[in-house]
Each structure stands twice: as C-alpha cells, then as structure tokens.
C-alpha cells in the first residue's frame, strides 16, 4: 500500500467518522392536476431534508403541513424549496391547501 493510498484512506475514514452529517440529496415532488407525485416521500430520520416542489399547475399552491411546521407558497409553473428539519421516525402529512381535496401527501421519516 503506497503512502498516497494510506493518506487517502485515512482521509476517507476521518470524513466518515468525524465529518459533518451528509445532507440528503434534494427530493423532487411534482404537483400536477392538484396531486402530488410522489405522494409518499421517504426521508432519513434525524437528518435535515430538502424538497424541491415543482408546481406544474397554472396557479399557485400552498404547501402546508402542521406536522412539519411548514408553509410555503409556490407560484403556478414555478418551483420552490421546502426545508424539512430533522424528524423523529414517523409519518408527517402535508397538503396543497388551496386544493386539499386531492393535494395530499405524507413524509415518512425512517
């Protein structure tokens, strides 16, 4: 094993042990015809997560969740970032409040 390899491995091990928690890649959720897709979003528990919410409908929608303590309005044909704080394992419902009859979803932290 060359010195270079040892150094690289040491650096990797160090990052794995002491490095900051790796952020999860943003998860894209699309709203079309007042329905979320996917409607069930899985995130790792106890880690922050980022949703990239794409509103493919012509008018604004309000991404709303009492469970997640999030409210974010996304204009028609625009996208918005919804930041989710670290969650304990569980199910966290959300909805598009202007069309809550159909725009329903859930974040599952596990």
């Amino acid at each position: 094993m060359s010195l270079k390899t040892v150094l690289a491995l040491t650096a990797l091990a160090g990052a794995a042990i002491a490095g900051p928690a790796r952020a999860q890649a943003p998860i894209t959720v699309t709203l079309k015809d007042h329905r979320f897709s996917p409607a069930e979003i899985r995130v790792a528990a106890n880690q922050p997560a980022i949703l990239n919410v794409v509103n493919d409908d012509p008018l604004a929608e309000e991404f709303d969740s009492t469970a997640l303590k999030v409210e974010k309005v996304i204009a028609g044909k625009q996208s918005g970032t919804v930041r989710i704080h670290p969650l304990r394992p569980g199910r966290y419902p959300f909805m598009g409040e202007y069309h809550s009859a159909t725009a329903q979803g859930v974040v599952v932290a596990q």
Partner: peptide
C-alpha cells in the same frame, strides 16, 4: 377552517407577498 386562493404570489423588494 379552510383556506382559499386569492392570487399569485408577488415578488417585490426581495419579499414574497401572498394573499389568501
């Protein structure tokens, strides 16, 4: 309680303004 759409968000002065 129910919330209803009034209009599209307006972006001005770095702020998002939403009526409902």
């Amino acid at each position: 309680a129910q919330e209803f759409y009034v209009g599209e968000p307006v972006m001005k002065e770095g702020l998002q303004i939403v009526p409902n």
